[in-house]
Design a protein around this nucleic acid. Structure first.
Lengths: 261, 261
DNA sequence: CGCCTGGTTGAGAATCATCAACATCTGTGG
DNA sequence: CCACAGATGTTGATGATTCTCAACCAGGCG
């Protein structure tokens, strides 16, 4: 059974539950979407936005733990996050998973499937999330006719490559403190991009996911956060983080200093 | 000064030195290139191949250590390897480099620049190498008119993403033996793709590059290779590797066994 | 209430890095 | 042809960061 058909099985005319009405509204259009400035090319004309809008499919919100696609699923679409948060992960040969990325509103994921025509990894919602499905074949057709859209698709993939290579650098060279710090600063700047607080973060992912993403154990993540807190760099309360001294955190990540006070 | 202009400053009419005549021939066309089946879409019609060929620029061979582009250079082209080998790397915040990939004949690199419009990393020849430069704007124009070429461009970028994520998994989860083994098996299968030996490998990169790529020190790389050799899995002679027991190497990489005999 | 998941903290163990010495190869120039 | 310097690679001893194992705490849910 097609994954997309399972998730996007609701027409816009069906009644909406309470959750859908607010942050996860299914009846939104690209033209009115607050995230459009993040996921769409800026130079798109209004007629082109409508054409793009007409191929985008929106469904009911995803529940936490609900998959968008799994490894091996046929590749048919890429996805944009409208609300919530998701993680992408792949299975290594021995069956353990490796988290390859977290995705927040305005960001696009699922592009790793294009090469093989099937998804190399899986994507799952970390919390209640709304996403837009963009059927890739239709997007290709449209891209061929709208140069700025084609360029934007290439650009999005290029950015995914850059992000993956940043993570490679992080995993290859950096200490536990640098890795955790880099993740927090990354989420901070992505928050800022969405006009949210750059210092008060709510982590949508578990310590397990963080450790998995950063190549660390959950114990090490816990210890590092504790060390940061004792050094006065930030405060930790469950999944709520407040960055008190962003400069010092930057210094740690850049290898200028450790978390020692 | 434009990087491409510096490298591809030779017309096909200039005399060729001895090196250019053999493996690094500058006068080749896509239609006659032995690597075309690897880097071009299979479904391309001959007229389309000619159109693509007409935008491809070929220059004199690169010398070892010669850069194709550096971090921060304006992004203008992607590149295909015709002969030799190259590495891509990026600088982390503290100035140390991280090797993000090795590229062999028939493979395409340079796509990480598309997102930012400038290269996030650098690419350098490991040995005497010939490459094809493909100006990206012209490739975009052509892609808009040739659906299979557009798909192929997306596909190449998707494959780059998959490769980067494989490396992320390797760095995040695996031991030194698994990392070195995975690199060797990767080169082996890429050799096989080019109809070369899958068991007798000549590594074009130094131990420094290997260690850097795998997030290990050169000493660890050396010790692991030695351990493999003592276990009878392979033989090491400088940069020449002969894989004697591919199955056992696969077992090591898959976490089924260690190199202990 | 008890159970389970998620998270924290502590002690000991292991892998890999660091530091240092040495071996090997390559090219240069006498 | 040999000597030499510099780059590259190997081997050994030591140490640090992180993992593993284990106990424990807190919150959510039947």
């Amino acid at each position: 059974m097609d994954v997309a058909a399972r998730i996007f099985n609701m027409t816009a005319k069906e009644p909406l539950d309470a959750a859908s009405r607010c942050a996860h509204d299914v009846q939104i259009s690209c033209a009115s979407c607050r995230m459009a400035r993040l996921c769409l090319p800026l130079a798109l004309e209004s007629g082109d936005i409508e054409r793009l809008d007409s191929i985008v499919q929106r469904g009911r919100p995803l529940q936490p733990g609900e998959h968008v696609y799994r490894a091996g699923d046929r590749f048919s679409s890429i996805y944009a996050v409208r609300s919530g948060a998701l993680k992408a992960y792949r299975m290594s040969s021995d069956g353990t998973e490796q988290v390859t990325g977290f995705y927040f509103p305005g960001e696009v994921f699922g592009m790793e499937g294009i090469g093989q025509n099937c998804h190399a990894g899986a994507a799952v919602a970390l919390e209640t999330s709304a996403i837009c499905e963009i059927p890739f074949e239709r997007l290709e057709e449209l891209s061929a006719r709208i140069p700025s859209l084609q360029r934007h698709c290439f650009s999005l993939m290029g950015q995914e490559i850059v992000q993956d290579q940043q993570l490679i650098t992080l995993l290859g060279k950096n200490s536990a403190e640098q890795r955790v710090g880099a993740l927090l600063l990354g989420i901070s700047s992505r928050n800022a991009r969405r006009k949210l607080s750059a210092t008060a973060l709510r982590l949508p992912m578990s310590r397990i996911d963080i450790g998995n993403y950063l190549g660390l154990t959950i114990e090490t993540v816990s210890r590092v956060l504790n060390r940061f807190q004792k050094a006065g760099v930030l405060t930790v309360d469950q999944r709520e983080i407040v960055i008190l001294q962003p400069d010092r955190l930057h210094d740690v990540v850049d290898g200028v200093a450790s978390s020692a006070p």
